[in-house]
């Protein structure tokens, strides 16, 4: 079988090149040029303790914190070990009841008017770090009240954390919930 040697050797050689040398080169360049990103964009507090990642959302339910989107991660919301969406179909009765419950929880917190979809519909990753600016503004009165802060003061912190579209036209404007809440904790 004269084809066996080249086929087999080519496979072994490419395993070394693509499975070993290639990731090693990328890791080397990444560590040299973008070390912070390569290691996970971790947020470090003033005691040099890692308190989370700017890219990975965390669960918040307390009134004094801005709430993130619902998460369908396995076991508990925003579990980074179980990324994923709900995969609920649009006519699934269980799903519709879940959304209705979330709407009710928001209404109970004093929200009037139409509810931004991102606040009651789970993200794809279950780790979405962002909410829309509308969803953030809607929560300002509740957070201000719970913290005993002025609405204007909370608005100011929200505006500081508003990320515009990338280069002015890519994607959507958004607010990073973890960074926003950490900033509020630091402000008081």
């Amino acid at each position: 079988m004269r084809e066996l040697r080249p086929a087999l050797f080519l496979f072994i050689l490419f395993t070394v090149i693509c499975g070993g040398i290639y990731p090693a080169i990328v890791t080397g360049i990444a560590y040299a040029v973008f070390p912070n990103q390569a290691k996970g964009s971790l947020i470090v507090d003033k005691n040099h303790r890692e308190v989370g990642s700017a890219l990975i959302g965390q669960p918040f339910s307390d009134s004094k914190y801005f709430w993130p989107r619902p998460s369908a991660a396995t076991d508990f919301g925003y579990n980074p070990m179980g990324s994923g969406g709900s995969n609920s179909g649009p006519t699934n009765p269980d799903y519709l009841k879940t959304v209705a419950d979330r709407v009710k929880a928001l209404r109970d917190s004093g929200v009037l008017g139409p509810i931004p979809a991102d606040l009651v519909q789970a993200s794809a990753s279950g780790l979405d770090p962002d909410i829309t600016p509308a969803a953030a503004r809607l929560q300002i009165p509740r957070v201000a009240k719970a913290r005993g802060m002025a609405v204007a003061e909370v608005s100011r912190v929200v505006n500081e954390h508003l990320k515009e579209r990338q280069f002015g036209f890519l994607g959507e404007p958004r607010v990073n919930v973890l960074e926003l809440n950490l900033a509020l904790d630091a402000a008081k």
Partner: peptide
């Protein structure tokens, strides 16, 4: 249910 009419279930905010 009183939610803005766009389907964001299973989608990421940034995209």
């Amino acid at each position: 249910l009183g939610v803005q009419s766009v389907n964001l279930e299973g989608k990421e905010t940034r995209f």
